[in-house]
Each structure stands twice: as structure tokens, then as C-alpha cells.
Computed example of a mutant assay.
Amino acid sequence: MEWETVFKFVTAFVTSIGAGGAIIFALSSWLGKLWANRILSSEKHKLESELERTKRELDIIKETTLRFQNDKILIYRTIVDVVARILSAFDAYQTGRLQPQDAGSRFDEFNEQRLRVYGYLAMLAPQSVMDAQDQLMDHLIKIANGSVDYEWKKVRELAINLLNEIRKDIGIDKSPISYRGEL
């Protein structure tokens, strides 16, 4: 065998391997991209599904929180209404505009509403609100029973304490309010 024949044979072999290698490289590159795109598409779909589920869960949490806060505000408004009504009755009785039998009727109404409000509060309010409410209600009952005198200053102090605890709980403002009037 001559060197020229060997050289042609080696050149043909290298050329055929090079062309086949290029074809194999091109096919493997194409197949790799195809698999990568399919895997990426699958992962993207999984992430989108997870994101959608998380959004739904957050919406549920948001709605529940808003409903809970709204319930608290409604209950706290009920307390203010109940206290305002009995204080109005105390003022009317003290000035002689409310007769004793009407005052008794108003107290019975107050007593029923106070018990209802206590149950509502027990479901939603923190202990600090419960304590302030207990102090105010106990004092109002003592006034109604005649064991303590009706002093507006003391009632106002207990009512403002309750309002401050309510304000803290619903997050309106953590700083306390105070009475700055003259009475």
C-alpha cells in the first residue's frame, strides 16, 4: 500500500466521521432544545397553577379577615349604643324627666342588651376589651341598684377606657383619647 492511498483512506475516514459527527451534534442539540422546552413548559404550568391556588387562598384569608373586623366593629358599635341608652336614662332620671317605673323598664332593657353584648364580645374581643367592658358595666349596674351614686366623671372615665381598648383592638389608633371638655 502506498502512502498516497493510505492518506486518501485516512482523509476519507476523518471526513466521514466529521460529517456524521456534525449530523449527530445537530440532532442532539435539536433534541436537547425540544426536551428543555417541554420541561420548561411543564414547570411553567405547575408554577402558574400554584400561583393561582395561592391567590385564591389569599383572597379567602383577606375576605375572612375583613368579615372578622367588620363583625368586631358592629359589636363595638352595639356596646356604644347600649351604654349611650342607659346613660341617657340615668341623666333623664336624675333630672326628673324619667319616672321610676320608666327607669326600671329602661334598666331591664339595658340588662338584656348588656348580656347579649357580653356574649358577642366573648366571641371576638381580647381580654383587655372584656376587662374594660366589665368595669363599666359593673359600675352602671351599681348605679342602677343604688349602691353607688351616679357621677358623670367616673362613668366617662370608664367609658373612655373601654373606647381606648376598642380602638387598640381594631387598630384605629394605639394612642389613647381623653376628655378635654369642661363637664
Rank of each mutant, 00 (worst) to 15 (best):
I79W: 03
G119Q: 07
L87V: 14
N70W: 08
E151P: 03
L136Q: 02
F107Q: 01
K62G: 06
T65M: 06
T78A: 13
I79F: 00
Q99K: 09
D59E: 11
A122Q: 12
Y118L: 15
V82D: 05
V148F: 01
I86M: 06
N145W: 05
P126G: 04
K72V: 04
L58G: 05
V129H: 00
A84L: 14
A122L: 14
F68A: 06
R116E: 14
R85I: 04
Y118W: 11
Y150F: 12
S88Y: 02
Q135R: 15
E112V: 06
R97Y: 15
L115A: 13
E109G: 09
R67N: 06
N70G: 08
E109I: 10
L140N: 00
E57D: 07
R106P: 03
I61L: 14
L87E: 15
P100A: 07
Q135K: 15
Y93H: 01
I61K: 08
Q99M: 14
V83M: 08
Q101F: 13
R97L: 15
L136H: 01
R77K: 10
G96S: 04
E151I: 07
L140V: 01
K142V: 07
I86P: 01
S105Q: 13
Y76W: 00
V80T: 15
D131E: 15
N145H: 11
G119R: 06
V80H: 12
F68S: 14
T65W: 02
R77Q: 10
R106Q: 09
P126Q: 11
V117A: 00
R56K: 15
Q133S: 09
M137N: 10
R114M: 10
I86Y: 03
Y76A: 00
Q127W: 07
P100D: 07
I79Q: 00
V83P: 03
N70E: 11
K142G: 04
Y120F: 08
E112S: 10
L58H: 00
D102H: 12
T64E: 15
R56V: 15
R106M: 09
L136K: 02
R85T: 04
Q101Y: 11
V129T: 01
S128I: 03
A122H: 11
I86T: 04
L98Q: 03
Y93E: 05
E112G: 02
S128M: 05
R106S: 14
R67W: 06
D91V: 14
L58I: 13
D102Q: 10
A122P: 02
D138F: 09
G119D: 04
L87S: 08
R106L: 08
R97A: 15
I61V: 11
Q99H: 10
R77T: 13
N111R: 05
K62E: 14
L58M: 12
Y93G: 00
S88F: 03
L87G: 12
R97N: 15
S88N: 08
V80L: 08
R114Q: 05
A92G: 12
V82H: 01
T78Y: 10
A132W: 00
Q94I: 09
R114D: 03
A92I: 10
P100W: 04
S128F: 04
T65F: 08
G146H: 01
I60F: 09
A125F: 02
T78L: 13
V80Q: 13
G119V: 08
A122M: 13
Q113Y: 05
L87A: 12
D102R: 12
L66M: 15
I143R: 03
R77E: 14
N145F: 06
A103D: 05
D138E: 12
A92Q: 08
Y150K: 03
Q127N: 15
R116G: 08
